[in-house]
Amino acid sequence: MPPKASTGPMCTRDSLASDLRALGLKPGETVLVHSSLSSLGWVCGGPVVVVMALLDVLGEKGTLVVPTHSGNNSDPSGWGNRPAPEAWWADIRAAMPPFDARTTPTLGVGVVPETVRTWPGALRSCHPQTSFAAVGPRAAAIVEGHALDCRLGERSPLARLEEGGARILLLGTDFSSCTAFHLAEYRILGLQVDNSFAVMTAEGRRWRTVRDTAISDDRFDELGAAFERDNAVVRGEVGGAVVRLFGLAEAVAYAEGWLAGHRPCAARV
Rank of each mutant, 00 (worst) to 15 (best):
P2E: 14
K4M: 11
S6V: 13
T7E: 15
T7W: 14
M10W: 14
T12E: 13
R13G: 01
D14M: 06
A17V: 05
S18K: 14
S18C: 04
L20N: 03
L20P: 00
R21N: 03
L23R: 10
L23T: 07
G24K: 14
L25R: 09
K26T: 01
K26C: 03
P27C: 09
L37H: 11
W42E: 04
G45C: 01
G46Q: 07
P47F: 08
V50Y: 06
V51A: 08
G62D: 11
T63V: 12
P67G: 08
T68F: 05
N73D: 02
S77G: 03
S77Y: 11
G78C: 04
W79V: 00
P83S: 11
A84H: 13
P85E: 15
A87N: 12
W89V: 02
A90K: 15
I92P: 02
R93E: 09
A94V: 13
P97V: 14
P98I: 10
F99C: 03
F99G: 02
R102C: 03
T104R: 12
P105Q: 15
P105S: 15
P105E: 15
L107E: 12
G108Q: 12
V109R: 11
V112F: 08
T115R: 13
T118F: 07
W119K: 08
W119I: 03
P120S: 14
G121S: 13
A122N: 13
A122F: 13
R124V: 03
C126L: 12
T130I: 10
S131H: 06
S131V: 08
F132T: 04
A133G: 06
A133E: 11
A139S: 06
A139T: 05
A141P: 00
I142V: 06
G145F: 08
D149R: 02
D149A: 04
D149C: 01
R151K: 04
R155Q: 10
P157A: 11
L161H: 05
E162Q: 11
E162M: 05
E163P: 00
G164S: 09
R167T: 05
L169F: 08
L171A: 04
S177Q: 08
T179H: 04
F181H: 10
H182K: 12
H182Y: 12
L183D: 07
L183N: 07
E185S: 07
E185Q: 15
Y186R: 12
G190N: 14
L191F: 14
Q192M: 13
D194S: 07
N195H: 11
N195W: 06
V199S: 08
T201M: 09
W207I: 01
R208H: 03
V210K: 10
I215Y: 09
D217W: 04
R219Y: 09
F220Y: 14
D221F: 04
D221P: 00
D221V: 09
D221G: 06
E222R: 14
G224I: 07
F227G: 01
E228S: 13
R229N: 03
R235D: 01
G236R: 08
E237P: 00
R244G: 00
R244W: 03
L245H: 03
F246K: 04
E250L: 05
A251T: 00
A251M: 01
A251S: 11
A253V: 03
A255C: 02
A255H: 03
L259M: 13
G261S: 03
H262Q: 01
